[in-house]
Design a binder for these strands. Structure first.
Lengths: 143, 143
DNA sequence: TCTTGACCTCAAGTCGACTTGAAGTAGAAC
DNA sequence: GTTCTACTTCAAGTCGACTTGAGGTCAAGA
Protein backbone atom coordinates (compact mmCIF):
# COMPACT_ATOMS: atom_id res chain seq x y z
CA UNK A 1 0.00 0.00 0.00
CA UNK A 2 2.75 2.34 0.94
CA UNK A 3 4.66 1.23 -2.09
CA UNK A 4 6.73 3.78 -3.89
CA UNK A 5 6.63 4.22 -7.59
CA UNK A 6 9.77 4.17 -9.61
CA UNK A 7 10.09 7.93 -9.88
CA UNK A 8 9.92 8.25 -6.13
CA UNK A 9 12.53 5.58 -5.58
CA UNK A 10 14.76 7.11 -8.20
CA UNK A 11 14.47 10.46 -6.54
CA UNK A 12 15.06 9.24 -3.01
CA UNK A 13 17.92 6.97 -3.94
CA UNK A 14 19.46 9.53 -6.22
CA UNK A 15 19.73 7.26 -9.21
CA UNK A 16 18.00 7.47 -12.58
CA UNK A 17 15.01 5.24 -13.21
CA UNK A 18 16.93 3.55 -15.97
CA UNK A 19 19.36 2.30 -13.36
CA UNK A 20 16.52 0.85 -11.34
CA UNK A 21 15.22 -1.01 -14.35
CA UNK A 22 18.71 -2.20 -15.09
CA UNK A 23 19.18 -3.43 -11.53
CA UNK A 24 15.86 -5.19 -11.64
CA UNK A 25 16.81 -6.91 -14.85
CA UNK A 26 20.03 -8.02 -13.18
CA UNK A 27 18.10 -9.37 -10.24
CA UNK A 28 19.52 -6.90 -7.76
CA UNK A 29 16.19 -5.47 -6.80
CA UNK A 30 12.58 -6.50 -7.35
CA UNK A 31 9.42 -4.52 -7.83
CA UNK A 32 6.31 -5.48 -5.94
CA UNK A 33 4.05 -4.95 -8.92
CA UNK A 34 2.75 -2.37 -11.30
CA UNK A 35 0.28 0.41 -11.24
CA UNK A 36 -0.67 0.61 -14.85
CA UNK A 37 2.68 0.16 -16.45
CA UNK A 38 4.65 1.68 -13.65
CA UNK A 39 6.77 -0.33 -11.32
CA UNK A 40 6.03 -0.11 -7.64
CA UNK A 41 8.60 -0.79 -4.99
CA UNK A 42 8.56 -1.68 -1.36
CA UNK A 43 10.25 1.07 0.67
CA UNK A 44 12.84 -1.49 1.73
CA UNK A 45 14.30 -1.20 -1.72
CA UNK A 46 15.95 2.01 -0.57
CA UNK A 47 17.97 0.14 1.99
CA UNK A 48 18.85 -2.43 -0.56
CA UNK A 49 19.97 0.23 -2.99
CA UNK A 50 22.11 1.74 -0.26
CA UNK A 51 23.64 -1.66 0.32
CA UNK A 52 24.33 -1.99 -3.38
CA UNK A 53 25.93 1.44 -3.46
CA UNK A 54 28.01 0.46 -0.49
CA UNK A 55 29.17 -2.71 -2.14
CA UNK A 56 30.03 -0.82 -5.27
CA UNK A 57 32.20 1.67 -3.47
CA UNK A 58 33.91 -1.19 -1.69
CA UNK A 59 34.87 -2.48 -5.10
CA UNK A 60 32.38 -5.29 -5.61
CA UNK A 61 30.94 -5.84 -9.04
CA UNK A 62 27.19 -5.95 -9.49
CA UNK A 63 27.40 -9.68 -10.05
CA UNK A 64 29.24 -10.18 -6.80
CA UNK A 65 26.70 -8.03 -5.02
CA UNK A 66 23.87 -10.05 -6.49
CA UNK A 67 25.38 -13.14 -4.93
CA UNK A 68 25.38 -11.48 -1.56
CA UNK A 69 21.63 -11.56 -1.42
CA UNK A 70 20.11 -14.87 -0.47
CA UNK A 71 17.12 -16.02 -2.52
CA UNK A 72 14.84 -14.70 0.22
CA UNK A 73 16.23 -11.24 -0.28
CA UNK A 74 18.04 -11.11 3.03
CA UNK A 75 21.64 -10.10 2.72
CA UNK A 76 23.97 -13.02 3.35
CA UNK A 77 27.35 -11.51 3.43
CA UNK A 78 30.33 -13.75 3.68
CA UNK A 79 32.47 -12.44 6.51
CA UNK A 80 35.61 -13.85 5.01
CA UNK A 81 34.89 -12.02 1.82
CA UNK A 82 34.43 -8.83 3.80
CA UNK A 83 37.76 -9.32 5.52
CA UNK A 84 39.45 -9.95 2.22
CA UNK A 85 37.94 -6.80 0.77
CA UNK A 86 39.00 -4.84 3.81
CA UNK A 87 42.56 -6.06 3.35
CA UNK A 88 42.45 -5.18 -0.30
CA UNK A 89 41.19 -1.73 0.54
CA UNK A 90 43.91 -1.37 3.09
CA UNK A 91 46.60 -2.11 0.56
CA UNK A 92 45.05 0.24 -1.91
CA UNK A 93 44.85 2.96 0.70
CA UNK A 94 48.52 2.66 1.45
CA UNK A 95 49.47 2.80 -2.21
CA UNK A 96 47.35 5.84 -2.72
CA UNK A 97 48.94 7.45 0.31
CA UNK A 98 52.40 7.06 -1.14
CA UNK A 99 51.17 8.40 -4.40
CA UNK A 100 49.48 11.39 -2.81
CA UNK A 101 52.61 12.31 -0.90
CA UNK A 102 54.67 12.02 -4.02
CA UNK A 103 52.29 14.18 -5.97
CA UNK A 104 52.41 16.79 -3.27
CA UNK A 105 56.15 16.74 -3.35
CA UNK A 106 56.26 17.03 -7.09
CA UNK A 107 53.85 19.94 -6.92
CA UNK A 108 56.08 21.79 -4.49
CA UNK A 109 59.40 20.62 -5.82
CA UNK A 110 61.72 23.41 -6.93
CA UNK A 111 63.57 21.35 -9.54
CA UNK A 112 63.15 22.98 -12.95
CA UNK A 113 62.05 19.71 -14.51
CA UNK A 114 60.42 16.91 -12.66
CA UNK A 115 62.89 14.49 -14.12
CA UNK A 116 65.64 16.31 -12.27
CA UNK A 117 63.97 15.83 -8.94
CA UNK A 118 65.27 12.92 -6.95
CA UNK A 119 62.02 12.22 -5.20
CA UNK A 120 60.14 12.23 -8.44
CA UNK A 121 62.64 9.91 -10.04
CA UNK A 122 62.45 7.51 -7.14
CA UNK A 123 58.71 7.54 -7.50
CA UNK A 124 58.98 6.75 -11.17
CA UNK A 125 61.37 3.97 -10.43
CA UNK A 126 59.06 2.59 -7.80
CA UNK A 127 56.19 2.74 -10.24
CA UNK A 128 58.33 1.08 -12.87
CA UNK A 129 59.19 -1.78 -10.57
CA UNK A 130 55.63 -2.26 -9.48
CA UNK A 131 56.12 -0.76 -6.05
CA UNK A 132 53.23 1.61 -6.32
CA UNK A 133 50.61 0.33 -8.63
CA UNK A 134 48.92 -2.95 -8.10
CA UNK A 135 45.35 -1.86 -7.68
CA UNK A 136 42.61 -4.40 -7.73
CA UNK A 137 39.23 -3.88 -9.24
CA UNK A 138 38.06 -0.50 -10.28
CA UNK A 139 35.72 1.41 -8.14
CA UNK A 140 32.69 3.15 -9.52
CA UNK A 141 31.84 6.77 -9.86
CA UNK A 142 28.65 8.30 -8.62
CA UNK A 143 26.79 10.43 -11.08
CA UNK B 1 72.49 1.64 -31.64
CA UNK B 2 71.45 0.67 -28.16
CA UNK B 3 67.83 0.81 -29.17
CA UNK B 4 65.54 -1.83 -27.78
CA UNK B 5 63.14 -3.71 -29.87
CA UNK B 6 59.50 -3.92 -28.94
CA UNK B 7 59.73 -7.34 -27.35
CA UNK B 8 62.50 -6.14 -25.09
CA UNK B 9 60.59 -3.05 -24.06
CA UNK B 10 57.45 -5.07 -23.48
CA UNK B 11 59.38 -7.47 -21.31
CA UNK B 12 61.20 -4.84 -19.30
CA UNK B 13 58.16 -2.64 -18.81
CA UNK B 14 55.92 -5.57 -18.06
CA UNK B 15 53.29 -4.67 -20.61
CA UNK B 16 52.22 -6.54 -23.75
CA UNK B 17 53.51 -5.36 -27.09
CA UNK B 18 49.96 -4.60 -28.12
CA UNK B 19 49.86 -1.99 -25.39
CA UNK B 20 53.02 -0.39 -26.72
CA UNK B 21 51.54 -0.18 -30.20
CA UNK B 22 48.38 1.23 -28.71
CA UNK B 23 50.31 3.85 -26.76
CA UNK B 24 52.26 4.76 -29.83
CA UNK B 25 49.08 5.23 -31.81
CA UNK B 26 47.80 7.47 -29.02
CA UNK B 27 50.97 9.52 -29.16
CA UNK B 28 52.09 8.56 -25.70
CA UNK B 29 55.34 7.04 -26.82
CA UNK B 30 57.32 7.08 -30.05
CA UNK B 31 59.54 4.53 -31.69
CA UNK B 32 62.89 5.60 -33.09
CA UNK B 33 62.46 3.50 -36.21
CA UNK B 34 62.19 -0.02 -37.46
CA UNK B 35 64.43 -2.94 -37.99
CA UNK B 36 62.64 -4.75 -40.73
CA UNK B 37 59.09 -4.38 -39.56
CA UNK B 38 59.89 -4.25 -35.90
CA UNK B 39 59.69 -1.13 -33.87
CA UNK B 40 62.80 0.02 -32.11
CA UNK B 41 62.72 2.17 -29.03
CA UNK B 42 65.11 4.44 -27.24
CA UNK B 43 65.77 3.08 -23.72
CA UNK B 44 64.25 6.31 -22.38
CA UNK B 45 60.89 4.92 -23.33
CA UNK B 46 61.06 2.81 -20.19
CA UNK B 47 61.11 5.89 -18.03
CA UNK B 48 58.28 7.31 -20.01
CA UNK B 49 56.27 4.16 -19.60
CA UNK B 50 56.91 4.31 -15.88
CA UNK B 51 55.67 7.87 -15.88
CA UNK B 52 52.58 6.80 -17.75
CA UNK B 53 51.97 3.98 -15.29
CA UNK B 54 52.40 6.45 -12.49
CA UNK B 55 49.91 8.83 -13.99
CA UNK B 56 47.43 6.02 -14.49
CA UNK B 57 47.60 4.93 -10.90
CA UNK B 58 47.14 8.53 -9.83
CA UNK B 59 43.89 8.47 -11.75
CA UNK B 60 44.82 10.34 -14.91
CA UNK B 61 43.37 9.17 -18.18
CA UNK B 62 45.67 8.40 -21.07
CA UNK B 63 44.52 11.56 -22.78
CA UNK B 64 45.40 13.65 -19.78
CA UNK B 65 48.76 12.00 -19.58
CA UNK B 66 49.39 12.69 -23.24
CA UNK B 67 48.88 16.37 -22.53
CA UNK B 68 51.49 16.25 -19.83
CA UNK B 69 54.21 15.70 -22.34
CA UNK B 70 55.38 18.76 -24.15
CA UNK B 71 55.87 18.42 -27.89
CA UNK B 72 59.59 17.93 -27.30
CA UNK B 73 58.85 14.88 -25.22
CA UNK B 74 59.89 16.44 -21.93
CA UNK B 75 57.33 16.07 -19.21
CA UNK B 76 55.61 19.35 -18.41
CA UNK B 77 53.51 18.65 -15.45
CA UNK B 78 51.23 21.32 -14.19
CA UNK B 79 51.91 21.71 -10.49
CA UNK B 80 48.42 22.94 -9.81
CA UNK B 81 47.01 19.88 -11.46
CA UNK B 82 49.23 17.75 -9.29
CA UNK B 83 48.00 19.49 -6.17
CA UNK B 84 44.44 19.03 -7.23
CA UNK B 85 45.03 15.35 -7.87
CA UNK B 86 46.70 15.01 -4.49
CA UNK B 87 43.66 16.56 -2.83
CA UNK B 88 41.38 14.27 -4.73
CA UNK B 89 43.42 11.28 -3.68
CA UNK B 90 43.31 12.48 -0.13
CA UNK B 91 39.54 12.58 -0.12
CA UNK B 92 39.34 9.19 -1.70
CA UNK B 93 41.76 7.78 0.83
CA UNK B 94 39.64 9.00 3.69
CA UNK B 95 36.47 7.54 2.20
CA UNK B 96 38.15 4.23 1.65
CA UNK B 97 39.41 4.29 5.22
CA UNK B 98 35.90 4.63 6.58
CA UNK B 99 34.76 1.88 4.32
CA UNK B 100 37.58 -0.42 5.30
CA UNK B 101 36.87 0.05 8.98
CA UNK B 102 33.22 -0.62 8.41
CA UNK B 103 33.94 -3.76 6.46
CA UNK B 104 36.20 -4.96 9.21
CA UNK B 105 33.51 -4.33 11.72
CA UNK B 106 30.91 -6.11 9.68
CA UNK B 107 33.25 -9.05 9.28
CA UNK B 108 33.71 -9.34 13.01
CA UNK B 109 30.24 -8.30 14.05
CA UNK B 110 28.38 -10.89 16.11
CA UNK B 111 24.91 -9.81 15.03
CA UNK B 112 23.16 -12.74 13.35
CA UNK B 113 22.21 -10.65 10.37
CA UNK B 114 24.12 -7.63 9.21
CA UNK B 115 20.95 -5.66 9.08
CA UNK B 116 20.62 -6.06 12.82
CA UNK B 117 23.99 -4.53 13.45
CA UNK B 118 23.92 -0.90 14.37
CA UNK B 119 27.26 -0.10 12.89
CA UNK B 120 26.34 -1.76 9.66
CA UNK B 121 23.08 0.10 9.47
CA UNK B 122 24.77 3.41 10.11
CA UNK B 123 27.15 2.59 7.32
CA UNK B 124 24.30 1.84 4.99
CA UNK B 125 22.60 5.04 5.96
CA UNK B 126 25.79 6.97 5.38
CA UNK B 127 26.14 5.36 2.00
CA UNK B 128 22.52 6.13 1.23
CA UNK B 129 23.01 9.77 2.05
CA UNK B 130 26.19 10.03 0.07
CA UNK B 131 28.46 10.19 3.06
CA UNK B 132 30.74 7.45 1.87
CA UNK B 133 30.82 7.19 -1.82
CA UNK B 134 31.86 10.02 -4.01
CA UNK B 135 34.82 8.55 -5.80
CA UNK B 136 36.34 10.34 -8.71
CA UNK B 137 37.74 8.69 -11.75
CA UNK B 138 38.42 5.01 -11.82
CA UNK B 139 41.87 3.77 -11.37
CA UNK B 140 43.40 1.12 -13.55
CA UNK B 141 44.44 -2.39 -12.82
CA UNK B 142 47.78 -3.86 -13.62
CA UNK B 143 47.78 -7.13 -15.46
C1' DT C 1 66.95 -21.47 -50.20
C1' DC C 2 63.34 -22.40 -47.34
C1' DT C 3 61.02 -22.34 -43.10
C1' DT C 4 59.86 -20.46 -38.94
C1' DG C 5 58.35 -17.33 -35.77
C1' DA C 6 57.82 -12.91 -34.24
C1' DC C 7 56.43 -8.99 -35.63
C1' DC C 8 53.26 -5.98 -38.76
C1' DT C 9 48.34 -3.49 -39.94
C1' DC C 10 43.61 -2.71 -39.52
C1' DA C 11 39.21 -3.68 -38.01
C1' DA C 12 36.53 -5.44 -34.69
C1' DG C 13 35.67 -7.31 -30.17
C1' DT C 14 35.63 -7.11 -24.88
C1' DC C 15 34.27 -5.67 -20.25
C1' DG C 16 31.14 -3.36 -16.77
C1' DA C 17 27.70 -0.37 -15.81
C1' DC C 18 24.72 2.01 -17.52
C1' DT C 19 22.37 5.38 -20.97
C1' DT C 20 19.85 6.49 -25.07
C1' DG C 21 16.48 6.18 -28.68
C1' DA C 22 12.41 4.67 -30.96
C1' DA C 23 7.95 3.31 -30.65
C1' DG C 24 4.14 2.12 -27.65
C1' DT C 25 0.68 2.68 -23.52
C1' DA C 26 -1.92 3.81 -19.36
C1' DG C 27 -3.62 7.09 -16.03
C1' DA C 28 -4.80 11.70 -15.09
C1' DA C 29 -6.12 16.37 -16.23
C1' DC C 30 -8.97 19.16 -19.05
C1' DG D 1 -13.06 12.00 -25.29
C1' DT D 2 -8.72 13.81 -26.20
C1' DT D 3 -4.28 15.10 -24.98
C1' DC D 4 -0.35 15.10 -22.14
C1' DT D 5 3.22 13.04 -19.76
C1' DA D 6 5.66 9.82 -17.55
C1' DC D 7 6.26 5.69 -17.79
C1' DT D 8 7.00 1.05 -20.66
C1' DT D 9 10.07 -2.46 -23.74
C1' DC D 10 13.94 -3.77 -26.45
C1' DA D 11 17.87 -3.06 -28.95
C1' DA D 12 21.72 -0.57 -29.52
C1' DG D 13 25.11 2.81 -28.17
C1' DT D 14 28.82 4.76 -24.93
C1' DC D 15 33.27 5.07 -22.55
C1' DG D 16 38.26 3.85 -21.67
C1' DA D 17 41.89 0.95 -22.26
C1' DC D 18 43.18 -2.42 -24.38
C1' DT D 19 42.99 -7.26 -26.71
C1' DT D 20 42.08 -10.35 -30.44
C1' DG D 21 41.88 -12.12 -35.08
C1' DA D 22 42.84 -12.41 -39.91
C1' DG D 23 45.97 -12.02 -43.26
C1' DG D 24 50.64 -10.27 -44.48
C1' DT D 25 55.93 -9.53 -44.13
C1' DC D 26 60.62 -9.92 -43.00
C1' DA D 27 65.15 -11.43 -40.74
C1' DA D 28 67.51 -15.13 -39.05
C1' DG D 29 68.60 -19.98 -38.48
C1' DA D 30 68.93 -24.81 -40.63
Amino acid sequence: MTDLDIAEVAHRAGVPASTLRFYEEKGLIASTGRRGLRRQYDPGVLERLALIALGRTAGFSLDEIAQMFAPDGQPRIDRRMLSAKADELDRRIRELGVLRDSLRHAAACPAPSHLECGTFRRLIDAAASGGVATPGRRVPGRR
